[in-house]
């Protein structure tokens, strides 16, 4: 879950301006709020109220109908949108507040065909339980691997997977496939060749380095997800 809570978020939100401002000024001020911004968490918040730096990757005005501005905001985890809108209002000099908010993206999860309502979910559960039809619940409950789908990936041999579940780090000879452009220090996800998640870890080498070197620790294991003894430990490396 950590990999989702620390991931990029996107929102669609309605900002209500307290007075009209020229459209050019509105656009210019909103543009100033992209990139690194300082934000003081609101009074009612779950974190310490010290000034923090947050990155706003994107803000777009989707629609403008005074006093309402429909915004799309893509930002770093932990950004307070209500506060962001309040601050935009301050800089505009007229004041503004958040009217409505909808999160449209959490890491890899977005409003696509996998998004389901409570109603659909409860129907899927009913179908499965009462009519023994698992087609809908299979669409509703995705394999846990989707939770790390946004991380760079490394695929390992069966015995390397087994060793990792017993706490080992991943050495270069255990790797069979990997993603391009992995940088040292990147958070990566380690999979079996069947596509099962084994663990998450931190890359100790770039992709190129892994391809060059034939030994050494490529990924330091951080969190093991696979249960032990699904794969045997002592199979010889071919």
């Amino acid at each position: 879950m950590k990999y989702l809570s620390l991931s990029t978020k996107a929102y669609v939100t309605i900002m209500q301006l307290h007075k009209e401002v020229p459209e050019e000024k509105l656009n210019a001020v909103i543009k100033e709020f992209t990139g690194k911004i300082y934000q003081k968490p609101p009074v009612r918040s779950s974190v310490r109220r010290a000034l923090r730096v947050k990155t706003i990757y994107k803000i777009d005005v989707l629609e403008l109908e005074y006093p309402y501005v429909l915004l799309y905001v893509e930002c770093e985890h932990g950004t307070y949108i209500r506060k962001l809108i309040h601050d935009i209002g301050e800089v505009l000099g007229v004041g503004a507040h958040m009217r409505e908010l909808r999160r449209v993206k959490t890491g890899p999860f977005k409003e696509d065909e996998t998004l389901i309502t409570m109603h659909q979910l409860s129907e899927a559960i009913y179908l499965y339980r009462k009519l023994n039809d698992d087609s809908e619940i299979r669409k509703a409950v995705l394999p846990g691997e989707y939770m790390v789908s946004h991380l760079p990936k490394v695929v390992v041999t069966d015995s390397a997977a087994a060793s990792i579940t017993y706490g080992a780090d991943l050495a270069v000879p255990g790797i069979t496939y990997l993603h391009s452009s992995i940088r040292k220090g990147d958070e990566v996800a380690v999979f079996t060749l069947k596509g099962e998640i084994v663990a998450t870890g931190v890359a100790m080498m770039h992709t190129e380095e892994i391809l060059e070197k034939r030994r050494g620790i490529a990924v330091k294991t951080k969190r093991v997800i696979m249960e032990r003894d699904i794969y045997p430990r002592r199979e010889k490396e071919k």
Partner: peptide, 26 residues
């Protein structure tokens, strides 16, 4: 990758076949 809109290439490091006796496709 497609789900997360990741656009990275896959590189083969070493030919290997996973055993059919253990684990399964998600």
């Amino acid at each position: 990758d497609a789900f997360a809109m990741i656009d990275r290439e896959w590189i083969l490091v070493k030919e290997y076949e996973t055993s059919e006796n253990y684990g399964k496709n998600p």
